[in-house]
Computed example of a mutant assay.
Amino acid sequence: MLEPFAQSEPLTFGVELELQLVSLSDFDLNASSPDLLHLLARKPFPGNVTPEITESMIEINSSVHSRYGPLREELLDIRDTLVAAADQLNIGLAGGGTHPFQHWPERRIYPGQRFQELSSLYGYLAKQFTVFGQHVHIGCSSGDDAMFLLHSLNRYIPHFIALSASSPFVQGHDSLFDSARLNSVFAFPMSGRAPFTLSWDEFANVYFAKMEATGIIKSMKDFYWDVRPKPEYGTIELRVCDTPLTVERAAALAGYLQALCRHLLERREPAPAEDDYLVYNFNRFQACRFGLDGAITHPKTYETMSLREDILTTLRRMEPHGEALGSMDALRHLAQVVQEGGDATYLRREFEEQGSAEGMVDAAIRRFRGSN
């Protein structure tokens, strides 16, 4: 049985980031999360840090915030604390949705019960899931508002994929995708998008109850949807973003989502409908494959639009909300990304300039710590 939807302060938000742990000798992934977590446990940590499915990654969680500025500052504090600890262990920390040349058979599953169960269930997919994403939670006053926001965001999912895309390289090769990470997520049977309903009661007591009765699903954690409700927190969770190369960009993406949700809750746009999803997978692919250069189809009008121009237009429309929420700097940051190119472009450029994938990883490590 699904727990009741907890009431939370509307539009409060928090961020989760999955980070790469990298050897500074060969710049491959390093199975050092047990040592790093042990070291971090010795003193207070701003936010929270937890293991992830393999020992070459960790997850950090911010506190709950209502304003972009304090979230950004906390993420910077978390980063600095992590970097200081990693320096003691002589390991590097990096963002990016994929490590460019790691080989999944070399990964070690973290020794936690849930991780071991996932490894047993999914086989090689569990190790192949050494990919790195950003999740953003948005507080909702009710389950019905959560379902409304979840489905209203379908139109804007390509924005967040393209703006965060930082996984162009896989297994030592340029994938030609700006965000190859999401291809790994799609391999899981309960990935994709949530079933369409705008009623929390229908979702919880009909859909979830049926899925639970099948024995396939035990909790919301078993769904790997692009956006999913989290009733225990009273939030929806956006899960499509690659982990950016900097925490500043991670904060900006969260600020954009907060402004967008404020706009959507005014209910001035046409209501979401099941037919919106006719173009969903195509638009998602365009954003993953081509990033900001993608072309998407509007779910209501079927108009073909430049993703780059659609993002810029939407950022301008969000300015009144940015003013009200104190997140104008976040919107300006993302407008600059659209105009100058994102993390996937940066990584490809570094690969060319450094002449090797190792040099590219080194550049990503320095970028995460604020050195370039």
Rank of each mutant, 00 (worst) to 15 (best):
F223M: 14
R348Y: 12
K210L: 14
Y110W: 02
D362Q: 12
M211F: 08
A165K: 09
G341W: 05
F45S: 02
S306E: 10
D362P: 00
N183T: 08
P168C: 09
I157C: 04
P51T: 04
I236M: 05
D343M: 12
Q20W: 04
V247W: 07
S199Q: 05
R308F: 11
S141M: 01
H38V: 04
L24P: 03
L182W: 11
H333S: 12
G69S: 14
E319L: 12
L150G: 02
D201Q: 10
F177M: 11
T301A: 13
V15P: 09
W200Q: 03
K230H: 05
A86K: 02
S167I: 02
K230N: 08
A126M: 12
E59H: 05
R107T: 00
V361F: 01
I53C: 08
H99I: 02
P44H: 05
T313C: 13
T81Q: 15
F290K: 13
D275I: 05
F368Y: 03
V22N: 05
E3N: 03
Q134L: 10
N61T: 10
R262M: 13
A295N: 14
E55Q: 15
A187K: 13
D77W: 10
L125Y: 09
P4Y: 08
A41C: 12
C288M: 15
L76E: 10
H103I: 13
V83C: 15
G215R: 07
N372Q: 13
A146H: 01
H321V: 00
H151A: 05
I157P: 04
I53G: 08
A335R: 13
N281P: 00
K221F: 13
P34W: 06
F368S: 05
S62R: 09
Y346A: 15
A251T: 01
E3T: 01
Q88P: 02
H298R: 06
E358S: 11
R181M: 05
L153N: 06
R193E: 10
R367F: 10
D276M: 09
H103Q: 15
G112R: 03
F160D: 06
L260S: 03
H263N: 03
F368H: 02
S62D: 11
E248Q: 13
F351Y: 08
S191A: 15
R369A: 14
E340H: 11
C261T: 00
A251L: 07
A287L: 11
G139Q: 01
L278V: 09
M147T: 00
D222V: 06
P100N: 05
L182C: 08
I78K: 04
V247M: 08
A357H: 04
R349N: 14
S371M: 09
I78D: 05
H65G: 07
P272N: 04
F5H: 01
L36A: 14
E212T: 10
G97Q: 02
R239P: 11
